[in-house]
Amino acid sequence: MSAETGPIVVHPDPDLEDIIPGYLDNRRNELPALKTALADNDFETLKILGHRMKGSGAGYGFDGITDIGFIIEMGARDENSEAIASGIEQLLSYLERVEVVYE
């Protein structure tokens, strides 16, 4: 399994176990809003959503989400639709592959 397709194993803080599933659900639920905003060139919404992802991801233990949030926020700031689309794809992929393991 390649790095791009294989599972992404994450070890969040066990204290956050209760809120991790909700967080990931929120990201998944956010995907349509991201896509709609991209289609509408609503860079302001994209900037806010990207900024929030960037600020929250690593805090929950998902460094990848922080990275993707950064891409989307920067893309929105630059009004770079391709970068944003790439970020959304990466988020989709990340959410499909992420596996949470508490130690």
Binding site: R52, G59, Y60
Partner: peptide, 16 residues
């Protein structure tokens, strides 16, 4: 904080 996820995260960390 306007981000519900960040508010929840902070609440959880601080409460714990």
């Amino acid at each position: 904080d306007d981000s519900p996820d960040d508010r929840l995260l902070l609440r959880t960390i601080l409460t714990k």
